[in-house]
Amino acid sequence: MTDELRGLLRESAEAHQPDRARMLARVEHGTARPGTARRSRDRERTRALSWPRIVLATLATAGTLTASALMVVDVDAVHDPDPPRSPSAVGRAVPPTAAGSRTEDGPLGADGSVDPHSNAYWAQSNVTLKAGEPLTALVVELRIALTEGVKDTGNWRTRPAADFDLSARQEGGFLVYRWTLKPGRTVPAGEHVFAGQYDHATGGRDAKDDTYRIDATAGAAERGAAVWGGFA
C-alpha cells in the first residue's frame, strides 16, 4: 500500500462520527430478557387499575357502615321504653291491694265482705257503696283471685240493671266484675250493694287476695273520689 493510500484511509476514519445513542439502544434491546418489557407494561397497567378498585372498595365499606349505623338508630327508636300511662279519672287506676285500703274519700265510702251465705263450693263477694251525695259517674270493680276452681256464676246489684254497663271476664289472674254507670244516669245518696258470685274448689276459700275499687264523681261540684280495699 502506498503512502498516499494510507493517508487517505486515515483521513476518512478520523472524519467518521458513530451514532452512539443508536448503538446503545441496540445493545440494550439485544441483552434484555424475553418478556421483560411486556411484564413491565402489565405492572403499569395493574397499578393503573388498582386505584379505582381501592376507591370503590373504600366507598362500599363506608356505605355498609353507614347502613349499619342507620339500622342501629332505627332499632333504638322502635324499642324506646313506653312512657308511663296516667290513669283516667274513673276506673283506670292501678288495682289496689288489700293491705293498701282506703275506704273513705270525701262523700264516698265502701266496705268489702264475703256473703255469709257462701258455702264450701260457692261464694258471693259484696261491695257496699256508701254515697253521701248523688253520684253522676261511677265505676265499681270487684277482683276475685283465680284460686283453684274459681268460675263466674253470676252477679247482681241493688240499683237498676238498666243503669249500668256490666262486664265479667278473666284479667291478669283475676275474675273481674266491672259495673259502669251509663251517661245521664245517677246514683242517689245512700248505701248500694254490688255482688259477684262464683264457684270454687271444695273447702274453705281464702279471700285475702281479692280486692275492690270504686271511682265516682259526686255532687253538683262534680268532685272526683276513689276508695278501695279487700275482703280480709
Rank of each mutant, 00 (worst) to 15 (best):
A69H: 11
R39F: 04
L59V: 15
S50N: 12
P81E: 10
R39S: 12
A37T: 04
G30S: 03
A77H: 06
E28P: 00
T58P: 00
S40G: 07
V75I: 14
P87V: 00
L59H: 12
H79K: 14
G35R: 01
R22T: 11
P34F: 01
M23A: 11
D74K: 02
G63V: 02
R53S: 12
V55C: 07
P18M: 02
R20G: 07
A21Y: 02
W51R: 07
T46A: 15
T31K: 05
R53W: 12
P87G: 01
T61V: 14
E44Y: 01
V90R: 00
T66Q: 15
D74S: 10
R33N: 02
A32V: 07
A32E: 09
L49C: 11
V27D: 10
R43C: 11
E28S: 10
S50E: 13
A37R: 06
A69V: 12
A77G: 08
R47E: 11
A69W: 08
V78G: 00
M71T: 15
R38Q: 14
T31L: 09
S68P: 00
A69Y: 13
A37D: 05
A67G: 02
R53F: 03
D19T: 03
E28N: 15
A21C: 07
R20E: 11
A25C: 09
R33C: 00
T61W: 07
G63A: 03
S50G: 09
R39H: 15
A62D: 06
A37L: 13
P84R: 07
D42W: 05
L49G: 11
V73P: 00
D80G: 12
R22W: 07
T36S: 08
D19S: 04
V27C: 09
L49D: 08
P81C: 02
T46N: 07
D82Y: 03
D42R: 06
R26E: 15
V73K: 03
R39D: 09
D19M: 07
V55H: 08
D76Q: 06
D19H: 04
I54T: 13
G63I: 00
P84S: 06
P34V: 03
P34T: 04
R53C: 11
L56K: 15
R20H: 12
T46M: 11
T61Y: 09
R45I: 04
R85A: 13
P83R: 01
W51F: 08
L70Y: 02
H79Y: 08
A48D: 01
S40I: 03
L49F: 05
T61A: 05
D82T: 10
P83N: 03
A67L: 14
D82I: 14
